[in-house]
Protein backbone atom coordinates (compact mmCIF):
# COMPACT_ATOMS: atom_id res chain seq x y z
CA UNK A 1 0.00 0.00 0.00
CA UNK A 2 1.18 3.47 -0.88
CA UNK A 3 0.35 6.63 1.07
CA UNK A 4 0.56 10.20 -0.10
CA UNK A 5 1.00 12.89 2.56
CA UNK A 6 0.63 16.53 1.52
CA UNK A 7 2.41 18.94 3.88
CA UNK A 8 2.49 22.72 4.15
CA UNK A 9 5.28 25.10 5.09
CA UNK A 10 3.84 27.54 7.64
CA UNK A 11 4.99 30.01 10.26
CA UNK A 12 5.89 28.00 13.36
CA UNK A 13 3.00 27.79 15.81
CA UNK A 14 5.05 29.47 18.56
CA UNK A 15 5.60 32.64 16.57
CA UNK A 16 3.35 35.61 17.21
CA UNK A 17 2.87 36.93 13.69
CA UNK A 18 2.79 40.59 12.66
CA UNK A 19 0.89 42.22 9.83
CA UNK A 20 2.99 44.22 7.33
CA UNK A 21 2.48 47.95 7.83
CA UNK A 22 0.79 48.35 4.42
CA UNK A 23 -1.81 45.73 5.37
CA UNK A 24 -0.99 43.58 2.35
CA UNK A 25 0.31 40.44 4.03
CA UNK A 26 1.80 38.83 7.10
CA UNK A 27 5.48 39.60 7.71
CA UNK A 28 7.31 36.39 6.77
CA UNK A 29 10.89 37.69 6.61
CA UNK A 30 13.15 36.12 9.24
CA UNK A 31 10.30 34.19 10.80
CA UNK A 32 10.75 30.57 11.86
CA UNK A 33 8.96 28.22 9.45
CA UNK A 34 7.88 24.63 10.17
CA UNK A 35 5.68 21.85 8.90
CA UNK A 36 2.05 22.65 9.69
CA UNK A 37 1.48 20.74 12.98
CA UNK A 38 -1.51 18.81 11.64
CA UNK A 39 0.57 17.68 8.66
CA UNK A 40 3.31 16.49 10.98
CA UNK A 41 0.67 14.32 12.65
CA UNK A 42 -0.25 13.04 9.16
CA UNK A 43 3.37 12.11 8.42
CA UNK A 44 3.70 10.38 11.79
CA UNK A 45 0.53 8.35 11.17
CA UNK A 46 1.78 7.24 7.76
CA UNK A 47 5.13 6.25 9.26
CA UNK A 48 3.42 4.22 11.99
CA UNK A 49 1.41 2.39 9.32
CA UNK A 50 4.63 1.66 7.49
CA UNK A 51 6.26 0.40 10.68
CA UNK A 52 3.32 -1.93 11.24
CA UNK A 53 3.97 -3.47 7.83
CA UNK A 54 0.78 -2.20 6.19
CA UNK A 55 2.43 0.39 4.00
CA UNK A 56 5.29 0.06 1.56
CA UNK A 57 5.89 3.64 0.47
CA UNK A 58 5.21 7.15 1.78
CA UNK A 59 5.38 10.06 -0.65
CA UNK A 60 5.25 13.61 0.73
CA UNK A 61 4.21 16.54 -1.41
CA UNK A 62 4.43 20.24 -0.76
CA UNK A 63 3.57 23.33 -2.78
CA UNK A 64 6.00 26.07 -1.81
CA UNK A 65 8.98 28.11 -2.85
CA UNK A 66 12.40 26.48 -3.17
CA UNK A 67 12.51 26.52 0.63
CA UNK A 68 9.73 23.96 0.88
CA UNK A 69 12.53 21.41 0.54
CA UNK A 70 13.28 21.99 4.24
CA UNK A 71 9.86 20.72 5.28
CA UNK A 72 10.11 17.75 2.90
CA UNK A 73 13.47 16.81 4.47
CA UNK A 74 11.91 17.07 7.93
CA UNK A 75 9.11 14.73 6.87
CA UNK A 76 11.72 12.36 5.44
CA UNK A 77 13.58 12.41 8.74
CA UNK A 78 10.36 11.28 10.43
CA UNK A 79 10.19 8.45 7.89
CA UNK A 80 8.73 9.49 4.52
CA UNK A 81 10.47 7.80 1.59
CA UNK A 82 10.24 10.25 -1.26
CA UNK A 83 9.32 13.88 -1.81
CA UNK A 84 7.80 16.09 -4.47
CA UNK A 85 8.06 19.87 -4.36
CA UNK A 86 5.67 21.76 -6.61
CA UNK A 87 7.65 24.94 -6.83
CA UNK A 88 5.87 28.28 -6.92
CA UNK A 89 6.70 31.83 -5.99
CA UNK A 90 3.06 32.61 -5.27
CA UNK A 91 2.15 33.26 -1.64
CA UNK A 92 1.09 30.01 -0.03
CA UNK A 93 -0.44 31.46 3.12
CA UNK A 94 -2.91 34.05 1.84
CA UNK A 95 -3.97 35.43 -1.52
CA UNK A 96 -1.88 33.10 -3.65
CA UNK A 97 -2.27 29.34 -3.81
CA UNK A 98 -5.82 28.80 -2.57
CA UNK A 99 -7.19 25.54 -1.11
CA UNK A 100 -8.97 24.64 -4.37
CA UNK A 101 -5.71 25.11 -6.30
CA UNK A 102 -3.93 22.90 -3.79
CA UNK A 103 -6.62 20.24 -4.18
CA UNK A 104 -6.30 20.39 -7.98
CA UNK A 105 -2.52 20.09 -7.76
CA UNK A 106 -2.79 17.10 -5.46
CA UNK A 107 -5.38 15.49 -7.72
CA UNK A 108 -3.04 15.80 -10.70
CA UNK A 109 -0.24 14.18 -8.71
CA UNK A 110 -2.52 11.43 -7.40
CA UNK A 111 -3.58 10.59 -10.95
CA UNK A 112 0.11 9.83 -11.62
CA UNK A 113 1.15 8.33 -8.31
CA UNK A 114 -1.96 6.21 -7.63
CA UNK A 115 -1.72 6.07 -3.83
CA UNK A 116 -4.18 3.91 -1.87
CA UNK A 117 -4.63 6.47 0.86
CA UNK A 118 -4.00 10.16 1.47
CA UNK A 119 -3.42 11.43 5.01
CA UNK A 120 -3.27 15.20 5.46
CA UNK A 121 -3.84 17.91 8.08
CA UNK A 122 -7.38 19.09 8.76
CA UNK A 123 -6.33 22.72 8.65
CA UNK A 124 -3.25 24.84 8.07
CA UNK A 125 -2.51 27.17 10.95
CA UNK A 126 -1.85 30.13 8.63
CA UNK A 127 -5.03 30.54 6.54
CA UNK A 128 -7.12 28.35 8.88
CA UNK A 129 -9.35 27.30 5.97
CA UNK A 130 -10.03 23.63 6.74
CA UNK A 131 -10.99 22.81 3.13
CA UNK A 132 -8.28 21.08 1.15
CA UNK A 133 -8.86 17.47 2.20
CA UNK A 134 -12.59 17.68 1.62
CA UNK A 135 -12.03 19.33 -1.77
CA UNK A 136 -9.49 16.74 -2.84
CA UNK A 137 -11.88 13.94 -1.85
CA UNK A 138 -14.57 15.61 -3.97
CA UNK A 139 -12.36 15.99 -7.04
CA UNK A 140 -11.30 12.34 -6.81
CA UNK A 141 -14.76 11.05 -5.94
CA UNK A 142 -13.24 9.38 -2.87
CA UNK A 143 -14.57 8.93 0.64
CA UNK A 144 -13.44 11.42 3.29
CA UNK A 145 -12.68 10.85 6.95
CA UNK A 146 -12.09 14.31 8.36
CA UNK A 147 -10.83 15.37 11.82
CA UNK A 148 -9.53 11.88 12.60
CA UNK A 149 -8.48 10.92 16.11
CA UNK A 150 -8.14 7.21 15.34
CA UNK A 151 -7.41 5.33 12.14
CA UNK A 152 -7.53 1.57 11.57
CA UNK A 153 -6.55 -0.07 8.33
CA UNK A 154 -7.39 -3.71 7.82
CA UNK A 155 -6.85 -4.77 4.23
CA UNK A 156 -9.35 -2.78 2.19
CA UNK A 157 -11.26 -1.69 5.27
CA UNK A 158 -10.58 1.80 6.60
CA UNK A 159 -12.16 2.69 9.93
CA UNK A 160 -11.85 6.23 11.15
CA UNK A 161 -12.98 7.90 14.37
CA UNK A 162 -13.74 11.58 13.91
CA UNK A 163 -13.74 14.42 16.43
CA UNK A 164 -17.03 16.22 15.88
CA UNK A 165 -18.83 18.93 17.85
CA UNK A 166 -20.97 16.45 19.78
CA UNK A 167 -18.16 14.00 20.61
CA UNK A 168 -16.86 11.16 18.46
CA UNK A 169 -18.18 9.51 15.31
CA UNK A 170 -16.84 6.33 13.72
CA UNK A 171 -17.15 5.63 10.00
CA UNK A 172 -16.02 2.87 7.70
CA UNK A 173 -14.72 4.24 4.41
CA UNK A 174 -14.42 2.74 0.96
CA UNK A 175 -10.84 2.59 -0.23
CA UNK A 176 -9.11 4.70 -1.51
CA UNK A 177 -9.90 7.55 0.85
CA UNK A 178 -8.76 10.89 2.21
CA UNK A 179 -8.08 11.19 5.92
CA UNK A 180 -7.59 14.56 7.61
CA UNK A 181 -5.92 14.58 11.00
CA UNK A 182 -6.98 16.07 14.30
CA UNK A 183 -4.71 16.70 17.28
CA UNK A 184 -5.39 13.48 19.15
CA UNK A 185 -4.48 11.10 16.30
CA UNK A 186 -0.90 10.71 17.56
CA UNK A 187 2.04 12.55 19.03
CA UNK A 188 4.70 13.03 16.34
CA UNK A 189 8.20 11.84 17.21
CA UNK A 190 11.29 13.99 17.19
CA UNK A 191 13.55 13.06 14.31
CA UNK A 192 16.89 11.61 15.45
CA UNK A 193 20.16 12.88 14.05
CA UNK A 194 20.95 9.72 12.02
CA UNK A 195 17.48 9.95 10.45
CA UNK A 196 18.05 13.58 9.60
CA UNK A 197 21.30 12.57 7.87
CA UNK A 198 19.57 9.72 6.02
CA UNK A 199 16.79 12.06 4.91
CA UNK A 200 19.28 14.15 2.96
CA UNK A 201 19.86 11.25 0.57
CA UNK A 202 16.22 10.40 -0.12
CA UNK A 203 14.84 11.28 -3.58
CA UNK A 204 13.25 14.71 -3.92
CA UNK A 205 11.73 15.73 -7.22
CA UNK A 206 11.02 19.38 -8.07
CA UNK A 207 8.30 20.23 -10.57
CA UNK A 208 6.38 23.33 -11.61
CA UNK A 209 2.61 23.80 -11.52
CA UNK A 210 2.70 24.16 -15.31
CA UNK A 211 4.08 20.61 -15.55
CA UNK A 212 0.70 19.56 -14.18
CA UNK A 213 -1.20 21.92 -16.47
CA UNK A 214 -2.10 24.26 -13.62
CA UNK A 215 -1.82 27.94 -12.92
CA UNK A 216 -2.65 29.52 -9.60
CA UNK A 217 -5.20 32.18 -10.40
CA UNK A 218 -6.78 33.85 -7.38
CA UNK A 219 -10.54 33.79 -6.80
CA UNK A 220 -10.49 35.08 -3.26
CA UNK A 221 -8.53 38.31 -3.37
CA UNK A 222 -6.99 39.68 -0.20
CA UNK A 223 -8.29 43.24 0.06
CA UNK A 224 -6.56 43.93 3.33
CA UNK A 225 -5.06 42.31 6.38
CA UNK A 226 -5.31 43.98 9.76
CA UNK A 227 -4.43 43.25 13.34
CA UNK A 228 -7.52 42.55 15.41
CA UNK A 229 -8.75 45.16 17.86
CA UNK A 230 -6.51 44.57 20.87
CA UNK A 231 -8.33 43.61 24.02
CA UNK A 232 -7.73 45.99 26.86
CA UNK A 233 -6.02 44.32 29.78
CA UNK A 234 -8.01 44.42 32.97
CA UNK A 235 -7.13 44.40 36.62
CA UNK A 236 -5.96 41.92 39.20
CA UNK A 237 -8.38 41.31 42.03
CA UNK A 238 -7.12 40.65 45.55
CA UNK A 239 -9.23 37.69 46.51
CA UNK A 240 -12.36 35.69 45.79
CA UNK A 241 -14.66 38.18 47.57
CA UNK A 242 -13.28 40.99 45.48
CA UNK A 243 -13.82 38.92 42.32
CA UNK A 244 -17.44 38.16 43.18
CA UNK A 245 -18.07 41.81 43.97
CA UNK A 246 -16.65 42.92 40.61
CA UNK A 247 -18.62 40.32 38.66
CA UNK A 248 -21.85 41.25 40.39
CA UNK A 249 -21.58 45.01 40.68
CA UNK A 250 -19.17 46.17 38.01
CA UNK A 251 -19.43 43.71 35.11
CA UNK A 252 -22.95 42.58 36.11
CA UNK A 253 -22.55 39.20 34.50
CA UNK A 254 -23.69 37.06 37.43
Amino acid sequence: MKILVPIKRVVDYNVKVRVKSDGSAIELANVKMSINPFDEIAVEEAVRLKESGKVSEIVVVTIASEKGQEQIRTAMAIGADRGILVKTDAAIDLGGVEPLSVAKTLKALIDKENPDLVIMGKQAIDDDSNQTGQMLAALLGWAQGTFASKLDIDGDKITVTREVDGGLETLELCSPAIITTDLRLNEPRYAKLPDIMKAKKKPLEIIEPSDLGLDYSVRMKIVNIAEPQPRKGGIKVDNVDDLIDKLKNEARVI
Partner: peptide
Protein backbone atom coordinates in the same frame (compact mmCIF):
# COMPACT_ATOMS: atom_id res chain seq x y z
CA UNK B 1 -18.53 26.82 10.55
CA UNK B 2 -19.00 23.81 12.81
CA UNK B 3 -17.58 20.34 12.25
CA UNK B 4 -20.77 19.62 10.26
CA UNK B 5 -20.43 22.59 7.90
CA UNK B 6 -16.65 22.33 7.67
CA UNK B 7 -16.94 18.71 6.64
CA UNK B 8 -19.66 19.05 4.02
CA UNK B 9 -19.42 22.44 2.35
CA UNK B 10 -15.87 22.28 0.89
CA UNK B 11 -16.82 19.03 -0.83
CA UNK B 12 -19.69 20.78 -2.59
CA UNK B 13 -17.51 23.82 -3.34
CA UNK B 14 -14.88 21.72 -5.12
CA UNK B 15 -17.54 19.91 -7.18
CA UNK B 16 -18.87 23.32 -8.23
CA UNK B 17 -15.33 24.61 -8.89
CA UNK B 18 -15.78 27.42 -6.36
CA UNK B 19 -13.23 28.62 -3.82
CA UNK B 20 -15.01 28.47 -0.46
CA UNK B 21 -14.69 31.32 2.02
CA UNK B 22 -14.26 29.81 5.49
CA UNK B 23 -15.31 31.10 8.86
Amino acid sequence: ATTFGKNALPRAAALLDMQQISD
